[in-house]
């Protein structure tokens, strides 16, 4: 394991220190927690937005804290959902009287921990609502299982629900729009190499020199299929097609595209993938309204990428374009 760290068990604490000192005018840390909130929190009369999850997905989620996006991010241990007490602290810190909205990625741990926190806050009289993001089409959407995971599409939920809250939307408005984003966003990813959780000290899985893993999660979980590595064009085609199979987009529909790097994939490669995604969508008559290429939801130093499509209408477009002051998503 080669990492630029101090004590492997203190990486989250050390990271938070460096994060707050990078943006002293935008962020503050709730004392004795791993919660990052907007400096001006709570914003009176505004719905407070809280997201979070395990660390190791930077810039998710603290990088999305800022005017127009999240009010708080709860940073768990690496790849481990944060505990209910931490989420509860975040809810209290951002409650400005208009209720608090939780954006939860669909992992058993996140769902349980956030829900327990919501119960604690509700007991205090804070109104809490939530959305569960499950954009990963690699996984079957079945009610008998855990269902789909939440991956890079979550960023669009942050952005659009954040804009709604900033514009003065009620807790119910924010919930409605967040659910609309979740209903219209799909993602799929692949990896060329695993990542190493600092405290574990060894890679999460192993891949031969000619192998790639398709449909893997963002926590070093193995994917749905392992196969011989192909070209960027074939990878882009496979990911995009899998999404389109699930989305039923038609000629003339408008989408936002995100080509997301998982940690160690050079931006050059992400752009190569984007070129092909673009071709595929154009060929089908799907209009690309806006494209995001970069590292939005990573998995430590995993090599690989994901593609996300968000189907847009006028309301979503307006909110997507609204101002954001979050360090990792400036609009």
């Amino acid at each position: 394991m080669k990492k630029i760290i101090n004590d492997p068990n203190l990486v989250v604490q050390d990271m938070l220190k460096g994060l707050v000192s990078a943006y002293p005018n935008s962020f503050k840390q709730v004392p004795n927690t791993t919660v990052i909130v907007r400096k001006d929190a709570p914003a009176t009369g505004k719905v407070g937005l809280v997201s979070g999850g395990g660390s190791g997905h930077e810039p998710a989620h603290a990088g999305y804290v800022g005017k127009g996006m999240l009010d708080a991010a709860v940073c768990g241990e690496v790849f481990t959902s944060p505990t209910p007490d931490q989420v509860y602290e975040a809810i209290k810190a951002v409650d400005g009287g208009a209720g608090v909205f939780l954006i939860i990625k669909n992992y058993t741990g996140d769902v349980m921990n956030f829900e327990m926190a919501a119960e604690l806050a509700q007991a205090d009289g804070i109104e809490v609502e939530q959305v569960i993001v499950n954009d990963d089409v690699a996984v079957e959407d079945s009610s008998f299982t855990t269902g789909r995971r939440g991956i890079a599409g979550t960023i669009f939920v942050h952005k659009i629900a954040g804009a709604k809250a900033e514009a003065g939307g009620s807790l119910q408005d924010v919930k409605t729009i967040a659910e609309k984003v979740v209903a219209n966003v799909r993602s799929m990813g692949m990896a060329l190499s695993p990542c190493t959780v600092p405290a574990a000290g060894k890679p999460s899985f192993e891949l031969a020199d000619n192998e790639m893993e398709v449909g893997m999660g963002i926590h070093g979980e193995p994917g749905t299929e392992r196969k011989a590595i192909t070209t960027a064009d074939e990878i882009a085609t496979e990911l995009t097609q899998k999404i389109l199979d699930d989305m039923h987009l038609s000629n003339g529909d408008e989408v936002a595209v995100m080509v997301n790097g998982l940690g160690s994939t050079p931006e050059m490669e992400l752009y190569i993938v984007n070129g092909k995604v673009n071709d595929i969508l154009k060929e089908k008559g799907i209009n690309i309204y806006k494209t995001f290429v970069g590292e939005y939801m990573t998995s430590l130093e995993m090599a690989g990428c994901s593609v996300t499509l968000l189907k847009l209408d006028d309301e979503l477009k307006e909110l997507l374009n609204a101002e954001s002051q979050a360090p990792a998503f400036r609009n």
Binding site: N9, E77, V78, G217, H219
Partner: peptide, 19 residues
């Protein structure tokens, strides 16, 4: 425990339980 979780999960169960 961590290696069991690496095989079919995300490799933190030993770390979580130990902590």
């Amino acid at each position: 425990l961590t290696s069991l979780d690496q095989a079919i999960g995300d490799g933190d169960h030993g770390i979580n339980m130990s902590r």
